[in-house]
């Protein structure tokens, strides 16, 4: 990232733009949830937003490789953690009787 004043002012414009996009996405999430409560869409928009924050605000678009390595390593295990459910619930020795309506 260049540190000349011109570059900084340009960056500032970019950050405001991203800020507005994020606000827009938030409104979108609520509207979508109101129209059709879909988990996939909700989480999809959230992931996009989180990605924008991480990439632009946290300057991950322009970071040293060491930090990428640390983060990839971390995210791998964080995702692994999510599989707890899968391990515990979806591979039982005896299938639980399911109840339907």
């Amino acid at each position: 990232m260049a540190d000349t004043p011109e570059q900084i002012l340009k960056d500032m414009k970019k950050y405001w733009l991203i800020g507005w996009i994020l606000l827009g996405c938030t409104v979108l999430t609520v509207v979508v949830a109101w129209v059709t409560p879909s988990i996939t869409i909700g989480l999809g928009i959230a992931t996009v937003k989180a990605g924008l924050v991480a990439v632009i605000f946290m300057h991950l678009s322009d970071e040293k490789s060491l930090i990428y390595k640390v983060l990839i390593y971390t995210v791998f295990f964080a995702i692994g953690l999510m599989f707890l459910t899968l391990l515990a619930l979806y591979d039982p020795i005896i299938a639980p009787s399911s109840r339907s309506y």
Partner: peptide, 9 residues
Amino acid sequence: IFLFPILYL
């Protein structure tokens, strides 16, 4: 950003 949809929506 993640908490909002999973808890509220």
